[in-house]
Write a protein that binds this DNA or RNA. Structure first.
Length: 423
RNA sequence: AGAGGAGUGGCAGAGUGGUCGAUUGCGGCGGUCUUGAAAACCGUUGUACCGAGAGGUACCGGGGGUUCGAAUCCCUCCUCCUCUGCCA
């Protein structure tokens, strides 16, 4: 979440940023934040001075009791009873202001980077580059949901039987393709300097708040209610939360982690004509890269991550484009996001396969993720993450774009991982 | 899952109601000494909030309670260790 100090010291910038996101009543909400904060401080001053007085009296009582002057001690006691009641009232007041402030801050999204274009929806995103040839397919080309049946490599009906819609079963070469992609992505990340981690795929509430899924996207996560745990919608959550309540040494930057996990999303209310087959699932596999960076270096890191993700798409020989998301389409916690989309030749549309974001200090503030610089003072770090990559739509594009009369040809880089070159 | 034990500052480890944010040791940082280093010695060494500052407040696993006063007592939750059981 945003720092109150940032809102106070850069009011206009924050306001303009939120307006770029079409955040309603931005000005009133920001004023409310400052109001709550002011009240909180004033109450704290009163409470603390009374508490100081009370602490003093208690010390006096202690000394008197030691000297055996019980009667004098009893006298002073009566004074503290008054103070205590006042403190209690102020304490409640303070807690209310603090809680109101926090709840309000939770509702405010991150301030977009100045490069973020204005806009309301995905249509206003800015295409910043396009790469690769769009393949020309034969007349009887098939979308992937037909291809998977034809070659019997992914079974949605079986998934329905076992679990429900959106939980496919990968079979035979389909399963092997999944495994090959995961290994390929992990190996590539390793070569790019990332440290591999295997985090838990259930997380607690604190972690959900740390990276911003809670309370913003409560209904989007599956919950294990008996244990108050959530199934992760992305490895971003556990991996970034490894650094919750941590004070790093400046020298440790940049921290680069990569992890493969299944991801679970309820996708409540987001099903429609365009989400057939692998386009949208409740469970899918993803390799995620996460960086913790020095604030002055975080945009360099973002570019590095963007280039890295593009290198994967190039190696997979998939045509792609890169979008800079507009204010209206960006995630709640992000300051700047690049989306990578591959062209799916049979569906004849672009599919989002990666989203690379710089959260600046928005997550770090919630996570209390700080570092100590040369001046020994603590300062919030910047967090970034990106998919590298999400599997289902990559699979869809590979299947559709590479279909031939002989079968589906596999990208060269995957062949060593697959042990076959055609499906 | 049952029984027992334990959770204190970067680490180790005192403290069981009173001037304790907390003895001490190690580690870290600064200094003296040295050509340099080691050793020795001296000093320093948590986080957050409030305050112009002086300074104040909070935090001894989390939350709640008792008390004028809690690291210390009570309740509850979490985590770890040992034994028993179960299990991939």
């Amino acid at each position: 979440m945003l720092l109150v100090n940032t809102i106070r010291d850069n009011f206009e910038i924050v306001l303009e940023g939120l307006q770029k996101r079409n955040f309603p009543n931005a000005e009133a909400v920001l004023h409310q934040v400052l109001e709550f904060d002011k009240n909180r401080k004033e109450t704290q001053v009163k409470r603390d001075s009374l508490q100081a007085e009370s602490n003093n009296i208690s010390k006096q009582i202690g000394m008197l009791m030691k000297d055996g002057k019980k009667e004098e001690a009893e006298k002073i006691k009566t004074r503290t009873t008054e103070i205590k009641e006042q403190i209690k009232t102020l304490e409640e007041e303070y807690n209310t202001y603090e809680e109101d402030l926090r709840q309000l801050l939770y509702t405010i999204p991150n301030v977009p980077h100045y490069a973020v274009p204005k806009g309301k929806s995905a249509e206003d995103n800015e295409v910043i580059l396009q790469h690769g040839e769009i393949p020309v397919l034969q007349e009887d080309k098939l979308p992937h949901w037909e291809l998977i049946k034809k070659y019997d490599i992914i079974d949605f009906d079986l998934g329905v039987k076992i679990t429900g819609a959106g939980f496919p079963v990968y079979k035979g070469r389909g399963a092997r393709l999944q495994r090959a992609l995961i290994n390929f992505f992990l190996d590539e990340a390793l070569h790019a300097g990332y440290t591999e981690v295997q985090p838990p795929i259930l997380v607690n509430e604190d972690s959900g708040y740390g990276t911003g899924q809670l309370p913003d996207k409560e209904g989007q996560m599956y919950e294990a209610t008996i244990d108050k745990l959530y199934l992760i919608p992305t490895a971003e959550v556990p991996i970034t939360n490894m650094y919750r309540d941590v004070i790093l040494n400046e020298l440790e930057f940049p921290i680069k982690n990569v992890g493969y996990t299944p991801c679970f999303r309820r996708e409540a209310g987001s099903w429609g004509a365009h989400v057939r087959g692998l386009n949208r699932l409740h469970q899918f596999d993803k390799v995620e890269i996460v960086q913790i960076a020095h604030p002055e270096k975080s945009y360099e890191a973002l570019e590095e991550m963007s280039n890295y993700v593009q290198s994967l798409l190039q190696k997979l020989e998939l045509p792609y484009r890169v979008l800079r998301l507009c204010g209206g389409d960006m995630g709640f916690t992000s300051a700047l996001t690049y989306d990578m989309e591959v062209f799916s030749a049979a569906q004849e549309r672009w599919l989002e396969v990666s989203s690379v974001s710089n959260f600046e200090s928005y997550q770090a503030n919630r996570l209390k993720l700080r570092f100590r610089g040369e001046d020994k003072k603590t300062q919030l770090a910047h967090t970034l993450n990106g998919s590298a990559l999400a599997l289902p739509r990559i699979v869809a594009a590979i299947l559709e774009n590479n279909q031939t009369e002989e079968g589906i040809k596999m990208p060269k880089v995957l062949i060593p991982y697959l042990g076959f070159d055609i499906i």
